[in-house]
């Protein structure tokens, strides 16, 4: 991977998550995903619905724990910890959910919501300067404490609720923040506000972040590295800078080609021609295709893709793909 300077803040190895689907069938939600997030780094996870990106995010924080594989947060291995120890260790990692309104208890006031984690995990004599610290936390996320402190979630807009969720997550000084589609339920103008807030917060606190989203431009904007997932597998991991030119996996190219023109800006079509899709339908995760899981939609697919699963290979430093046929681009723009 890119960095060896420090121990990674978060490491996951060979995560497998399966859900029983009745009649002896299993949904193969995540099948052998490994990732590493350096201290202060943001890793973006990109993929369409059903690709397992949210399941990866949740298994990182052990909600629920993966069926196989290990998750290490700093020097603590979370998988296999006793419940009591797990809860203590997990406080160093926080998650921000997609729908900020339903993520907050509707009957509690903002000040209590923000303080909740602290009241559970903080030192016992912690409550003296509670109000001042809640106010500071609210100001940090761009809310006016005087107006929102005593409100309940239904009195706030979606963007404000998401700010409360962020303040609440930051209250415990986490080392790693996991954001599962934090802006996809927000309007464009509010989305930009929240993205900017996450950007400045992670930079100021040197936070590591796992940012999960389906929107290529959003993920590129906030991440240092991007991991593209398809049907429970990792297709490609690459640095976000210049990813629109560098990405070579046929699925990543397809995602890029699906972007509306306005999001491309001046980065309009570069790179290999857009992968022409063969079948419109996503295969079922109950019974994923043999070999490469993308082969049913892939323009480059051959018999080898059906017989043999492509192993991840590094095509240049920090850029790995799982594809038999894609080649690194030579002529850079």
């Amino acid at each position: 991977m890119t960095t060896t300077r420090d121990a990674p803040a978060l490491t996951a190895t060979d995560l497998v998550v399966e859900f029983p689907a009745g009649r002896g069938q299993k949904v193969h939600a995540v099948s052998g995903v490994s990732l590493e997030v350096a201290a202060g780094e943001t890793l973006g996870i990109l993929g369409e619905s059903g690709c397992g990106k949210s399941t990866v995010g949740r298994s990182l924080i052990q909600l629920p724990p993966p069926d196989a594989g290990t998750v290490r947060l700093g020097d603590v291995t979370l998988t296999g910890l006793a419940p009591r120890e797990l809860r203590r260790a997990r406080a160093r990692m926080q998650i921000i959910m997609q729908d900020p309104v339903s993520a907050l208890n509707p009957r509690r006031r903002v000040k209590d919501l923000v303080w909740e984690g602290r009241s559970i995990w903080g030192p016992g004599d912690d409550t003296r300067d509670k109000d001042a610290r809640v106010d500071a936390a609210l100001r940090d996320v761009g809310l006016d404490p005087a107006t929102v402190r005593d409100r309940r979630p239904h009195e706030l807009s979606g963007g404000q609720c998401q700010r409360v969720c962020i303040a609440r997550a930051l209250m415990l000084d986490p080392e790693v923040l996991i954001c599962d589609e934090p802006v996809s339920s927000l309007d464009v103008s509010v989305q930009a506000q929240i993205l900017n807030l996450l950007e400045t917060t992670t930079r100021r606190r040197a936070l590591s972040m796992v940012f999960i989203a389906h929107d290529v431009s959003v993920v590129k904007n906030i991440s240092d590295r991007v991991m593209v997932m398809y049907l429970g597998k990792v297709c490609e991991v690459l640095p976000s800078d210049g990813m629109q030119h560098e990405a070579v996996h046929p699925y990543t190219r397809l995602l890029l080609a699906s972007l509306p023109e306005a999001q491309l800006g001046s980065a309009a079509p570069a790179g290999p021609p857009a992968a022409e899709e063969r079948a419109a339908e996503l295969p079922s995760p109950l019974n994923p295709p043999s070999g490469c899981r993308f082969r049913t939609r892939c323009p480059l697919a051959t018999e080898r893709c059906a017989a043999e699963e492509p192993a991840p290979r590094e095509i240049r430093p920090g850029h790995r793909i799982a594809c038999h046929h894609a080649e690194p681009r030579r002529n850079h723009p």
Binding site: Q191, S217, N221, I222, S223, D224, Q244, A262, Q263
Partner: peptide, 11 residues
């Protein structure tokens, strides 16, 4: 305010 692909990361 639309994030665009041609902007460098962390804009």
């Amino acid at each position: 305010s639309i994030p665009r692909l041609d902007l460098p990361p962390h804009t």
